Simulated scan of single mutants.
Amino acid sequence: MATKIPSLNWLRVFEAAARCESFSRAAGQLNMSPAAVSQQVKALEERLGAPLFERHAHAVTLTETGRAYLPSVQQALLTLEGATDGLFGAGPAQQLFVQSVLIFAHGVLARGLTNFAGLHPDISLTLTTANQPHEFAQGFNDMQIVFGNPQAHGPESDRLMGEKLYPVALPEVAQGVSSPQDLLQHRLIEVATHRAGWPYLFDHLGVLPGTARYVYADSTLMAMAMASEGGGVALARAPASDKAMAEAGLVPCLDFVSVEGRETYHLVYPDRRALRPPARSFRDWMLDWTKGLDD
């Protein structure tokens, strides 16, 4: 099947010309002639079947299509440059690429990375976040921190920690909840991607949720933000959500309610024996760092 993915050289030339708004200035940066820049841009436009620049006497400006295309090209070039430098540059063993589910990165990793950097000052960590399965399949990573089934992301993994669920809301809302049944008087903010949500909690509490009113969010961080604006009652997923809960000014609705979740966080990688030195160091640190959080 034919592809429209163009030459990397064409993309580099396009990015420089768009940034400089001049074929001549781009030529100077790329150590090429202006004519060669013009030819490569034209070849790219012909390959894509759309004009990317409007030509003027002494300058060029991006078309609407060119402006829409530029951010993706710049991001792709930066990603490729970073991965190449990290793996094949002056210190390939010290560059580390980790991808984590967002709530874990926000609530657990963020407060531990200063400790990791102090123990391993020679390791340069690039941390990216994701929530959806297709996001975890994009780009290169030494290891990933996922929630749920680790086999869906890699052949080897370590269990890091689980979660505890309990209802949280603004203090004035929480004060009006004295029993699990009272939760049904409020809008319940549900994160639809989780297997354990409000129905799971109600089942453990022996509450029939027939009159429950749900509003949906795509992440726990968003659910906390909605609850902080008086949008309803959210579910804490401790300890990963502790930071988001505190930042949102939320408190537990029922001190005696806390239910173990159904899924856990895992550190995933292709092959433990093939881990590069910085990845081995991160794995050892991660297992130790989370040891005291899963009580």
Rank of each mutant, 00 (worst) to 15 (best):
A90M: 12
V41N: 05
L96R: 02
A137N: 07
A26V: 01
G112I: 10
A212P: 09
G82H: 15
F256S: 15
G112K: 09
H204K: 15
L8R: 01
L70G: 07
W10K: 02
E46K: 13
D85G: 05
L208H: 15
A130G: 07
P199H: 11
P133H: 09
G82L: 12
L80D: 07
T61V: 06
T3A: 11
A27E: 04
V108P: 02
N149Y: 02
L165H: 09
V257G: 02
A43W: 05
L78Q: 14
T211I: 10
G206C: 11
G112Q: 04
V60D: 01
S7A: 11
V251I: 03
V268Y: 08
D288T: 11
A174G: 15
P6M: 15
L78T: 13
T79G: 12
H186D: 04
L62C: 14
A2M: 11
N149Q: 08
E260P: 06
Q95A: 03
P133K: 10
Y269E: 09
K243P: 03
G197D: 01
P277W: 11
A105H: 11
S228V: 08
P171M: 03
H58Q: 06
L250P: 14
A236Y: 02
V215F: 06
S157Y: 10
M245Y: 00
A212S: 13
L8Q: 02
G66L: 05
S281G: 06
E260F: 06
G139R: 00
R276E: 05
I189K: 00
R47E: 10
Y265F: 15
T264P: 00
P239H: 05
A18G: 06
F116V: 04
A246K: 09
T63K: 09
H106K: 04
D85N: 14
H194M: 14
M245H: 01
T61C: 13
Y69A: 13
H204Q: 13
R195C: 04
A240T: 15
F14G: 03
T264R: 01
L293N: 03
A192D: 12
A117Q: 15
E172W: 08
F14R: 10
E163P: 01
T79L: 15
D142Q: 02
Q75C: 09
A244R: 03
A17Y: 00
V73M: 13
F136N: 04
E247P: 05
G89N: 13
A217G: 08
D242R: 01
E64I: 08
L78M: 14
R213V: 10
P239M: 05
F140R: 03
V13R: 03
H266M: 04
V268L: 12
L188V: 07
D218T: 13
V98P: 00
P270F: 00
E247I: 01
T61D: 05
V259T: 02
Y69E: 10
L183Q: 04
F202S: 07
Y200D: 02
P155K: 12
P209S: 07
H266V: 03
V108L: 01
G148C: 06
D203M: 13
G49P: 01
A152K: 14
A169S: 12
G49E: 09
G112M: 03
V177W: 02
M286N: 02
F14K: 07
A223K: 03
L201N: 13
M32S: 06
Y216R: 15
A130D: 08
H56C: 14
G261C: 03
T129W: 02
P180I: 01
A105Q: 14
E156M: 04
G139I: 07
